[in-house]
């Protein structure tokens, strides 16, 4: 079983627009934005990974905190998609995240993200008991996404340590200080989330050299493998054995919705490893899943035939001298 932890789940709401108003500045007439289509689904990075895994018939349990009407909608969506759930219920409502996708500019959506509810200490205590219990059944645990308000910055480090003590491989799919602190617990795979800024600690990630330096630092600090996205159609894998570049030969104009693509990447890597593929083949499958997801309007592409078709377009090169 693959356990995913999403401490700050969301209801993801996507709106597609023909165009944005010329000005969003307040005016007496107000501003009305008309949409041509909308989609709603359970969201949050770990939840997305679970949805991807369940679509590949892999036993997965999603954990975290749910509350209010939004929490009920998230739960119903996950159960309908074949994901097992083990959430802690809280009194406050889960957040809703909105993405505006403008025709012709699909690769740069406009996001409106709520902060999410604070987590009461009692709910956190109940979560840790559930987490310890679920670790007994897990082969991997994915710690994913931003921390909700009030959760200590070393929380992922704590969860990673508990998993390591039980022999469960840890995947950290998060960013910032919580991800950096988790490295001390020697996670199996780190996929830094760079949406809030192209940085890994104090290292900028604007160039290929910068990405490689960050990957090496992650390995030096404890991670077995570090996978960092470099540009929209490229990923760089760094491990103690070497450095590999993955590139998808896909034009940006093919992209319809980028939200969730990096979660499909992590999900795809885990599908490959779960099915016994080697690391490089697994990352290739993850990359194909990410590109296929970016090419559909739904958040995740769950059509295996389409993912396999994209697999043909992914090139892998081992970096010389590594």
């Amino acid at each position: 079983m693959i356990l995913t932890v999403t401490l700050n789940p969301a209801l993801d709401k996507f709106y597609w627009l023909e165009h944005l108003p010329e000005s969003l500045a307040p005016s007496e007439e107000g501003v009305t934005i008309r949409t041509t289509k909308s989609l709603t689904s359970a969201g949050g990075k770990g939840i997305n990974v679970s949805v991807f895994l369940a679509a590949h018939d892999i036993d997965t349990v999603a954990m975290g905190f749910l509350g209010g009407h939004t929490g009920q909608v998230i739960l119903r969506d996950l159960l309908a998609r074949g994901v097992s759930t083990n959430f802690v219920w809280i009194d406050e409502e889960n957040r809703t995240n909105v993405a505006l996708i403008v025709r012709g500019h699909e690769y740069c959506p406009i996001h409106i993200h709520e902060e999410g509810p604070p987590i009461p200490a009692e709910a956190l205590r109940i979560f840790l008991r559930k987490y310890e219990r679920m670790l007994l059944r897990a082969s991997y645990v994915v710690l994913a996404g931003a921390l909700p308000p009030g959760i200590p910055l070393d929380f992922y480090q704590d969860l990673a340590r508990r998993a390591r003590e039980k022999g469960v491989r840890v995947v950290v799919h998060a960013g910032g200080e919580p991800m950096l602190r988790s490295l001390a617990e020697r996670p199996f795979l780190v996929k830094p989330d760079v949406r809030e800024g192209l940085r890994f600690g104090d290292l900028p990630l604007h160039t290929e050299e910068g990405v490689i330096a960050a990957g090496r630092r992650a390995i030096a600090q404890g991670a077995e493998i570090c996978l960092i996205s470099h540009q929209l159609t490229g990923d760089i894998l760094v491990s103690a054995e070497g450095i590999w570049k993955f590139e998808a030969k896909t034009p940006l104009s093919a992209f319809r919705n980028l939200v969730g693509a990096d979660d499909a990447l992590v999900g795809g890597v885990l599908v490959g490893l779960h099915q016994g593929a080697d690391l490089i083949e697994s990352v290739k499958y993850g990359m194909a899943a990410a590109v296929a997801s970016a090419e559909v309007e739904e958040k995740l592409c769950l059509d295996r035939k389409k993912i396999l078709a994209e697999l043909e377009k992914v090139e892998v090169r081992r970096r010389e001298g590594s």
Binding site: V61, L75, L79, V83, S84, T85, N86, F87, R129, M134
Partner: peptide, 9 residues
């Protein structure tokens, strides 16, 4: 089956 593992101790 409803794969909801909600439970108490």
């Amino acid at each position: 089956v409803r794969r909801d593992l909600t439970a108490v101790e």
